[in-house]
């Protein structure tokens, strides 16, 4: 499954992802109307740490604690290749998942009856569109990628570093 990757070095904290996310999950396409509805909320969060802005959203964990603690079966995933979704019909608003989430990216909706979380914009993805936050990011700080690809890139980077170190040691 492709997951969201965020690059805090690139992020300029414009919060375009938050606005796009909230709008993508609102009842309307009109931003002015959406902000007038108190229920409109983003599912992506911009947190500040070490002088950087860090976009955070659901990691869609393999062994998801939120799914494990959900008493009503509202949180589930149809397979390991699918995102963790919250079924608002089944949700009883107990907020156990909110407590269980190690990233703090599930929260109780404004009306207090259900929880809301990132669904990786499966609706948009079904139409061949990237998640709203990815599409909105003006600096390319957010993208969707297979974790294997991420690992591969990290390996290539690590290998290049190791090779450079070896060459330096050899004095070549």
């Amino acid at each position: 499954m492709k997951r969201l990757v965020a690059d805090p070095i690139r992020c300029l904290a414009c919060r375009a992802c938050e606005i796009a996310c909230a709008l993508a999950h609102a009842e309307t396409d009109d931003l002015a109307e959406a902000i007038a509805d108190p229920g409109t909320r983003p599912r992506i969060y911009l947190e500040s740490a070490e002088g950087l802005a860090v976009p955070l959203q659901c990691r869609h964990c393999e062994d998801a604690p939120c799914v494990a603690v959900c008493p009503s079966g509202a949180l589930s995933r149809s397979s390991e290749a699918e995102p963790v979704l919250a079924d608002q019909q089944k949700c009883i608003g107990c907020a156990y998942c909110v407590q269980a989430c190690p990233f703090g990216v599930i929260r109780v909706a404004t009306d207090q009856t259900v929880v809301i979380k990132c669904d990786l914009c499966i609706g948009r993805q079904g139409q061949g569109l990237p998640p709203a936050c990815v599409a909105a990011c003006p600096v390319g700080a957010l993208w969707l990628e297979e974790m294997d690809e991420v690992a591969k890139r990290s390996r290539a980077k690590a290998a290049a570093g190791a090779a450079a170190a070896s060459l330096t040691n050899e004095g070549r």
Binding site: C14, A16, I19, L31
Partner: peptide
């Protein structure tokens, strides 16, 4: 290439 445009600016 400017899409989507900044919501803060628009508002």
């Amino acid at each position: 290439s400017q899409q989507p445009q900044c919501g803060f600016g628009r508002l």
